[in-house]
Simulated scan of single mutants.
Amino acid sequence: MKKWGLYLSLLIFALILTACGEPYLSTLKPAGEVAERQFNLLLLSTGVMTLVIVVVVIIYVIVLIRFRRKKGEEDKIPEQVEGSHKLEIIWTIIPIILILILAVPTVAETFNLGDVSERDKVDKDGNRENLVINVRASLYWWEFEYPDQGIVTSQDLVVPTDEKIYFNLIASDVKHAFWIPAIGGKIDTNTDNENSFYLVFDGEKADEAGNIFYGKCAELCGPSHAYMDFKVKAVPRAEFDEWVVAMQNFEEPEPQTAVAQQGKEIFENSCIGCHAVSAENSMPAEARIAPNLADFGNRTRVAGILPYTKENIKEWIQNPGDIKPGNLMYDSANFSEEELDALAEYLMSLKAQE
């Protein structure tokens, strides 16, 4: 009885967990056209498999009851039906039909969701009609370049809702995979070729999620693979345009305090060789070897995974290898507490919008 109690508890616990999921990070709560279509395929395949299981169980139970050995009929041989053309045709045609039911919509959706033919469509003035974002994955951070807008960001992806957004994806070191669970399935980022696809963020679903979604790396890429996250802010087109203008006009603010001024001086002597604080994408990708820190003051996470607090910023600067093992930012244990305070205050002042 103890074992059965344990098994029952585990079953109930598993069933409860299947209902868990946040709207900003759940494939079972689709928040866009692509995710919705993929979810419908999931429902179709689950339905077909469930039907097969139910039919097999019913046949098994019928056979078990009808053809069980009865008292007094131990030597009775049931009617033998081997070589029945009718049965052979039935159990050949039915699997073919089931495969077609699964294969036809799956293949059709694969081609539809992979269609990026309108990515470079231009209007009469020669301007691209659709938003295109170049995604570059690195150990263990993400860069998002908006080539037509002339800006680049890191870790925070900002997108408009209710329109197709085309992504060009590549990796700078090893294979990664770009995945926003609530918006669409993953796609690999490779070092030797560029992959492209599109996503759509549903405006109503985005409002329900607080306009925030989270993305992840879905390809095992190293010891900090599990910490390679990024934030997605999905907003109406007008708000997105305001953000673009703010980023295009972003200028590094002058420090307002002596502590922030000290932090700027430390940053320019120690960090500027890897990190840029300009939103312009004037530098080639090869020169962008660390996350761009423009608008760092408006982030909600540190290193993509920690709550945005001054203490976590200091901890990340001082011990990046402890937080994300294997990342390429060297531990800066030579900074004093005063210098860490100054650096954190300076970084938190970098804002494109208040």
Rank of each mutant, 00 (worst) to 15 (best):
K2R: 14
K3R: 13
A14Y: 07
L15S: 10
L17R: 04
A19I: 08
S26E: 04
S26L: 00
K29Q: 15
P30Q: 12
V34F: 02
A35F: 05
F39G: 06
T46S: 09
V48D: 03
V48S: 11
V55S: 04
V56E: 13
I59D: 15
Y60H: 10
V61S: 05
L64W: 12
R66C: 12
R66Q: 07
F67I: 04
E79L: 13
S84A: 01
L87D: 12
T92V: 15
I94N: 02
P95D: 08
I96M: 15
L98K: 04
T106E: 12
T110N: 09
F111Y: 05
G114M: 11
V116H: 01
E118H: 00
R119A: 15
V132W: 04
I133N: 06
A137F: 04
A137G: 13
S138A: 15
Y140T: 06
Y140H: 03
Y146P: 13
D148N: 10
Q149A: 14
L157R: 06
V158W: 03
V158N: 09
P160E: 10
T161P: 07
A171M: 08
S172C: 01
V174S: 05
A177H: 08
F178S: 13
W179Q: 10
P181E: 02
P181K: 05
N190D: 15
D192Y: 06
D192W: 02
E194Q: 14
S196G: 02
V200Q: 12
D202H: 07
E208N: 10
C217A: 07
C217P: 06
A218R: 15
A218T: 04
L220G: 03
A226M: 08
Y227G: 14
M228E: 14
M228A: 13
K231Y: 06
A234F: 06
A234V: 03
R237A: 10
A238D: 13
E239C: 03
D241E: 12
E242H: 04
W243E: 14
A260V: 00
A260I: 00
Q261A: 14
S270R: 11
C274L: 01
M283A: 09
P284N: 02
A287F: 12
R288E: 12
R288H: 01
I289E: 02
N292Q: 07
D295N: 15
D295G: 01
T300P: 07
T300E: 15
T300C: 03
L306M: 11
E311L: 03
E311C: 02
N312F: 01
E315Y: 01
I317P: 02
Q318N: 07
N319T: 06
P320L: 10
S332W: 04
N334D: 10
F335T: 11
D341I: 01
A342W: 00
A344K: 04
Y346L: 03
L350P: 01
L350C: 00
